[in-house]
C-alpha cells in the first residue's frame, strides 16, 4: 500500500500538541525516577516515538479498544488518559489508574478502552483478536488496536493472532512501533527481513510501513488501515522511528554509537511537526511557545500530584484477586497463626 503524506494539515496542531504533551510527560517520568519516587524499577520511555502514538490514536474512535506494550505511556496519554493519574500509577500510588498495583507496565483503563499495557513482549496482542470478535458480535463498529514494539515480531503469538484476525476478517489493527531496538538488540540483529509489514501481507492482512518522523503520514496511514479494519479487513502498520534513550531508564545504551544516536535523535517527530507548523503558517512561534509551556506546566503538576498521593493501604493487597463478592485469599500470617495456636 502506498501512503501519501501531508493530506491532513489541519490536524497538525492537535497532533503536535499531543506529541508535545507525551514528551513532556515522559521527561517527567524520567525525573520522578531519578528522584527515586517511582514504585517500579522498570521504566520505558517512548521519547522519539510520539508520532506513532499521536498519529495512530488520531485514527481511533471513542469505542475502539487497544492494548499496548511496556513502552505505552504515550499511547495511553494520546487516547485521553489523565496524566496525573498515570503518574500516580507509575509511582505506585492509590490514586493511580490501577490503585498502585499495575504501575508503568500494567496500566489500563476500561473506560478509555485500554485493555492493558503488558510486561510480556507480545503478551497483549491476542486480546485484540478477542476484542475484535466481541465488537463484531455486539455490532459496536469498534476496532481493536494492538500496539507493540519490533521486539514482539520475534514472538509466535503475534503470528497466531495475525492469522486469526485475517482468517476471520476481524476489525483489528496491529501497530508495530519499530524503534529499531528490542532492548539492546538492533532489529537487523534479530531478524533477516526488516521490512516488517511484509509478514502481514503473507497472512492476508493489509499492511504498510510509514516513517515515524512524520506524524501526518502516520495519521494518514493509520486512518486508511483503521477504515479498512472497520470494514472487516484487518491490517498491520509498521511505524519506523528511533528510541532516543536506553531500553529502560538506567540503560545508557553502550551497544550503540554516539554518532548513531545523534543521527537517530535528529529524526525528531516533534521538531519536524514544529517546523511544518511554522512553515505552513498553521502556528506562530509565540503560539507554539505558549503551547509548549502549557504542556510542561500540566506535566509538572502530575509530579506534584503523584508525590503527594497516598500509598495503597496494606489490606488492599488481598483485594481483587477474584471478584469482590468472593472471599479474599487468607493471608499467610493468619494461616501461620492458626497453625501455631494449637495447645
Amino acid at each position: 500500500m502506498h501512503v501519501t503524506p501531508g493530506a491532513s494539515n489541519s490536524a497538525l496542531p492537535a497532533l503536535y500538541r499531543t506529541m508535545r504533551r507525551i514528551r513532556s510527560f515522559e521527561e517527567r517520568v524520567g525525573e520522578l525516577f531519578v528522584r527515586g519516587q517511582t514504585a517500579g524499577s522498570m521504566l520505558h520511555l517512548s521519547i522519539g516515538e510520539e508520532a506513532a502514538a499521536a498519529g495512530v490514536t488520531a485514527a481511533m474512535g471513542p469505542r475502539d479498544t487497544f492494548t499496548t506494550h511496556h513502552r505505552g505511556h504515550g499511547i495511553f496519554l494520546a487516547r485521553g488518559a489523565d496524566p496525573a493519574r498515570m503518574m500516580a500509577e507509575i509511582a505506585g500510588k492509590e490514586a493511580g489508574y490501577c490503585r498502585g498495583k499495575g504501575g508503568s507496565m500494567h496500566i489500563a483503563d476500561m473506560g478509555l478502552g485500554h485493555l492493558g499495557a503488558n510486561a510480556i513482549v507480545g503478551g497483549g496482542i491476542p486480546a485484540v483478536v478477542g476484542a475484535g470478535l466481541s465488537a463484531r458480535h455486539h455490532g459496536t463498529g469498534a476496532i481493536s488496536v494492538a500496539f507493540f514494539g519490533d521486539g514482539a515480531t520475534g514472538q509466535g503469538i503475534l503470528y497466531e493472532s495475525m492469522n486469526m484476525a485475517a482468517l476471520w476478517g476481524l476489525p483489528v489493527l496491529f501497530v508495530c512501533i519499530n524503534n529499531q531496538y528490542g532492548m539492546g538488540t538492533r532489529i537487523d540483529q534479530a531478524t533477516a527481513n526488516t521490512a516488517l509489514h511484509e509478514r502481514a501481507l503473507a497472512f492476508g492482512l493489509e499492511g504498510a510501513t510509514v516513517d515515524g518522523v512524520d506524524v501526518e503520514a502516520v495519521a494518514d496511514a493509520a486512518r486508511t488501515l483503521a477504515d479498512a479494519a472497520r470494514a472487516g479487513r484487518p491490517g498491520f502498520l509498521a511505524v519506523t522511528c528511533y528510541r532516543f534513550y536506553g531500553h529502560a531508564r538506567k540503560d545508557k545504551s553502550p551497544y550503540r554509537s554516539p554518532e548513531e544516536e545523534a543521527e537517530g535523535r535528529a529524526r525528531d517527530p516533534l521538531a519536524r511537526a514544529r517546523a511544518r507548523l511554522l512553515e505552513t503558517g498553521l502556528a506562530t512561534e509565540a503560539e507554539l511557545e505558549a503551547l509548549d509551556a502549557a504542556a510542561d506546566a500540566e506535566m509538572d503538576a502530575t509530579i506534584d500530584f503523584a508525590v503527594a498521593a497516598g500509598e495503597p493501604p496494606l489490606a488492599s493487597m488481598f483485594r481483587d484477586v477474584f471478584d469482590p463478592a468472593e472471599p479474599e485469599p487468607e493471608p499467610v500470617r493468619a494461616r501461620i497463626d492458626r497453625v501455631l495456636a494449637r495447645e
Binding site: 476500561m110 491476542p126 486480546a127 483478536v129 478477542g130 476484542a131 466481541s134 509466535g156 503469538i157 493472532s161
Partner: peptide, 18 residues
C-alpha cells in the same frame, strides 16, 4: 487454527469486552 496461546489470548480479550 492450531494456536493454543492465541485461543486463550483471544478468550481473554473477548471476556474483557463483554
Amino acid at each position: 487454527p492450531i494456536s493454543e496461546a492465541a485461543i486463550v489470548g483471544a478468550a481473554v480479550g473477548a471476556a474483557m469486552t463483554g
